[in-house]
Design a protein around this nucleic acid. Sequence first.
RNA 1: GGGCCCGUAGCUCAGCUGGAUAGAGCAACGGACUUCUAAUCCGUAGGUCGGAGGUUCGAAUCCUCCCGGGCCCGCCA
Length: 546
Amino acid sequence: MKELVKEKVESAIREIYGEELIGVVERASFEKPKKKEYGDFATNVAFLLAKELRQKPFSIANELLEKLKLMEEFEKVEVAGGGFINFFFSQNFYVEILKKVLHEDFYLSDTGKGERVLLEYVSANPTGPLHVGHGRGAVVGDVLYRVMKLTGYKPEREFYINDAGRQIKLLGVSIYARMKELSGEEYPFPEDGYRGEYIVEVAKKLLELKPDILSLPEEEAVEIAAQFGKEELLKEIQKDLRDLKVEFDIWFSEKSLYEKGEVEKVLKLLEEKGLTYPKDGALWLKTTQFGDDKDRVVRRSNGEYTYFASDIAYHYDKIERGYDRAVDVWGADHHGYIPRVKAAIQALGKEPDWLEVVLIQLVKLFKNGEEVKMSKRAGNFVTLRWLMDEVGVDAVRFFFLLKRHDTPLDFDIDLALSTKNENPVYYVQYAHARLCSILDKAKERGFSPSEENLELLSSEEERELIAGCYSLKYELELVAKRREPHRLTYYLIDLASKLHRFYNKHRVIDEENRELSSARLALIEAVRKTINLGLDILNVAAPRRM
RNA sequence: GGGCCCGUAGCUCAGCUGGAUAGAGCAACGGACUUCUAAUCCGUAGGUCGGAGGUUCGAAUCCUCCCGGGCCCGCCA
């Protein structure tokens, strides 16, 4: 709808003021006003044109009005508030929109213009189970991907496996220590080792598989434990993600960067550009040249590469793979890391904006009004698995998108289990079930949807529903452009609310008025299709009955 | 000390690339089921949008300062 009004205004401006002022349309607002007296849509273009033309907004608005009045999509156009232009859509226009919703893939768009975007999310270390924060990032990334697919982008999904470096060694030592304990030997547990009980389980499993492992030289045994643990835990992570309905196209191994010499290669490249220097026995990257607070170490004085070094190689690899843009989903505690990675990207010759970072804020769980504390089994955090078992996947996915990704989320477990209207998942699902029920009931009684008399759908509630369905297209564009998947849940709650309001005021199946009934059934089908679509994109169930 | 995020109704939060009288849910109060699902709806009440300046036709939204809360500042990942 927005595009349409925009288009019409553009053509009016073109006729009156000429091509050169078309640009203001992009900056102008086109919105549904809060007050219905102000029409179905309103714009402030006249104010913006006033600045350019140095004339009064009011007179400019009136000039535009003369042209806009004549267009058949509008029943009425008026100027108010000193220069706002208010549009009232004609009934025919609503009919056309409704038909589009019914027959076309109206929600698709080409906003992305074919941009190849690499979405990287979760990327948890294979040293333990996923926690709820990972889950939130997973859902944000996953839904973003699904929406981008529908809005003209070419996204790909990637999980970066941190299977190299210190934390994997530590994992090996932790498992080794537990195996020693299990076989009754005294062995000091490493200072920063992984203390979660899951380590004990991995240790048990490895002992069963390789009973003689403890008779091997310690170094060798630790290495085996590290590899085994990494694989086991990665499998667990993959299972959690599958159950959360989150998928990936590429599993990218950090280790492979070392094995293929990519880390050395990229550091050499940076060295050739004169962007590295040795100091105190370490190798530093001049990130301050690109806006970072201080230079950063890429190779420690003991010869080991830092995590940053492999991350540079990783992003270099992304650049080499030819993506137009990379979007990384990170935990908000990593935000201090952004300037140095962006600096590295510039050092590699790309614009800093080539990389976008979506930050995921903390998730806190509440049950019976109290915060759910860390479980011993997991180490020191609540696992995603526990939460999924507790409230189900649909609730997890939906609730993770109830707040913008960078604001902290308090996850109310009691609410997620509630079957009342206060639970937004049920609220939306109930709307869907209700729509299905009406359609079933109508069929039983010999009614069927028809597009013969759609002009009868002229009440405020019906128009709201028609416009509401169609705006899915616009919402998806916003989700993709602004990387804000939470908008989709809000949209669905809003559409469900419009449906419930309609339902309580109007009767669909009416023996006295079969024509209106048939038209309303068409509307019901359109709303059902739209809610179903929205839930599908979220990958949340749309039950026919509840 | 430096940097980032946040402060909107009693509570949880939308709205923030400037637009008309600031929204929703929960909680409170009052209503609506012989009818297509009451897992729903309608109404009432509730606000100096943390504070003070500034930019302008117009500010919750942009700028500056202040107050309050969170997070980050490693040759960790």
